[in-house]
Structures are given as C-alpha cells and as structure tokens.
Simulated assay, not measured.
Amino acid sequence: MSESVKITEAAALQIKEMMKQNDEEGSLLRVAVKGGGCSGLTYGMGFVPEAEEDDIQFEQNGIQVVVKKEDAAILNGTVIDYKQSMMGGGFTIDNPNAIATCGCGSSFRTATQTGTPENC
C-alpha cells in the first residue's frame, strides 16, 4: 500500500503548474481525509514543505505525495485526475472505497469510516 493514491498525468501537470505559480516548487503534495461534509468525510489537498513522521511518501508522475498512515487505507486505490471543459477545469477524485457520496460530490463515506456529517 505504499502508493495508495494515483495521480494521473493531467493532474500532475496541473499540480506542477500550481506549484510554480504559488512558489511551492520542491514542496510535497499532501492528500488527506477529514471529517465533515454531508456524507461524513471530505478530501483535502495542499502543499507542505516536508513529510511528517507518520506519513507514507511516494512519487506519482514527478509529484512527491504524502499521505498519513491512518488515511492510507481509506485512500487506497484513489485516482486524482484533472479535467478541462468549456466551464473551466477541476480535479476529480475517484475513490473505490467510497460507498456513498454527497450530491455536491465533495464528501463521501466508506464501509468502515463514516466520519462526522455536517449540513450542506
């Protein structure tokens, strides 16, 4: 489970561009799971300068990714992609462990993790 999250080439290109624009080159991409949202869990992504002691670190398409060990099972098999359309672009997250998602698509729950639902 050393590479619990897959970053597609399109997502990696967008992440690298964001790193360049925000002066974050050399940073790591943290992918996380937090409590909240309509279904109980939400995703988080952001740049961090270094890994923490309880992180799993790996590379995907030239991006150094860190995931907390406790989040790795929930994120195992997750694919992060970037899609462009006439309305703009955005990241998509496909998690095979999610058994229910919110209508807005920003929260989820798994068979073993329900999180802490909030009102949408």
Rank of each mutant, 00 (worst) to 15 (best):
residue 88 G to W: 13
residue 5 V to Y: 07
residue 66 V to C: 07
residue 118 E to W: 02
residue 58 F to T: 14
residue 1 M to V: 10
residue 108 F to Q: 08
residue 76 N to V: 01
residue 118 E to I: 00
residue 30 R to Y: 15
residue 110 T to A: 04
residue 15 I to N: 01
residue 76 N to E: 07
residue 25 E to W: 02
residue 43 Y to E: 01
residue 35 G to C: 09
residue 32 A to K: 13
residue 49 P to H: 03
residue 100 A to L: 09
residue 75 L to W: 12
residue 100 A to V: 13
residue 111 A to D: 14
residue 13 L to P: 04
residue 95 N to W: 06
residue 37 G to S: 06
residue 79 V to N: 05
residue 86 M to Y: 03
residue 32 A to I: 08
residue 47 F to G: 00
residue 67 V to R: 01
residue 40 G to T: 05
residue 87 M to W: 02
residue 81 D to P: 10
residue 96 P to G: 14
residue 21 Q to Y: 04
residue 100 A to N: 12
residue 98 A to L: 07
residue 97 N to E: 09
residue 27 S to T: 14
residue 116 T to R: 09
residue 20 K to G: 00
residue 4 S to C: 12
residue 93 I to A: 09
residue 80 I to K: 02
residue 14 Q to H: 08
residue 3 E to P: 06
residue 63 I to A: 00
residue 20 K to D: 00
residue 107 S to G: 08
residue 52 E to N: 10
residue 32 A to L: 12
residue 5 V to N: 04
residue 4 S to M: 12
residue 33 V to P: 01
residue 86 M to V: 06
residue 95 N to D: 08
residue 6 K to V: 15
residue 89 G to A: 04
residue 73 A to Q: 10
residue 72 A to G: 01
residue 24 E to D: 03
residue 104 C to D: 15
residue 20 K to I: 01
residue 75 L to T: 06
residue 44 G to P: 08
residue 66 V to A: 04
residue 47 F to N: 02
residue 84 Q to Y: 12
residue 82 Y to P: 02
residue 51 A to F: 07
residue 91 F to A: 13
residue 89 G to R: 04
residue 93 I to P: 05
residue 30 R to Q: 14
residue 97 N to D: 08
residue 38 C to A: 15
residue 28 L to T: 08
residue 92 T to K: 11
residue 13 L to N: 09
residue 18 M to T: 11
residue 110 T to D: 04
residue 15 I to F: 02
residue 78 T to I: 04
residue 24 E to P: 01
residue 4 S to V: 15
residue 111 A to Y: 10
residue 35 G to P: 11
residue 14 Q to F: 03
residue 9 E to C: 03
residue 30 R to I: 11
residue 46 G to C: 07
residue 90 G to T: 06
residue 42 T to V: 15
residue 60 Q to M: 12
residue 74 I to A: 08
residue 82 Y to H: 12
residue 54 D to K: 15
residue 11 A to E: 02
residue 71 D to Y: 10
residue 94 D to T: 14
residue 35 G to I: 06
residue 105 G to P: 08
residue 89 G to L: 11
residue 107 S to N: 11
residue 50 E to A: 14
residue 92 T to C: 08
residue 28 L to F: 14
residue 22 N to R: 03
residue 110 T to G: 06
residue 92 T to N: 11
residue 23 D to V: 11
residue 98 A to S: 09
residue 108 F to R: 07
residue 55 D to W: 07
residue 85 S to H: 06
residue 32 A to H: 09
residue 75 L to R: 04
residue 44 G to E: 07
residue 53 E to S: 03
residue 28 L to E: 09
residue 19 M to H: 00
residue 36 G to L: 08
residue 63 I to M: 01
residue 8 T to Q: 06
residue 100 A to E: 15
residue 85 S to K: 06
residue 31 V to T: 02
residue 105 G to M: 07
residue 82 Y to K: 02
residue 27 S to W: 13
residue 26 G to C: 10
residue 18 M to H: 11
residue 25 E to C: 11
residue 22 N to W: 04
residue 23 D to T: 12
residue 94 D to A: 14
residue 70 E to F: 10
residue 71 D to L: 05
residue 83 K to I: 15
residue 42 T to K: 12
residue 79 V to A: 06
residue 73 A to P: 05
residue 14 Q to I: 03
residue 78 T to G: 07
residue 8 T to R: 06
residue 7 I to Y: 09
residue 66 V to Y: 02
residue 41 L to P: 06
residue 96 P to Q: 13
residue 115 G to D: 03
residue 23 D to M: 13
residue 98 A to V: 05
residue 89 G to D: 04
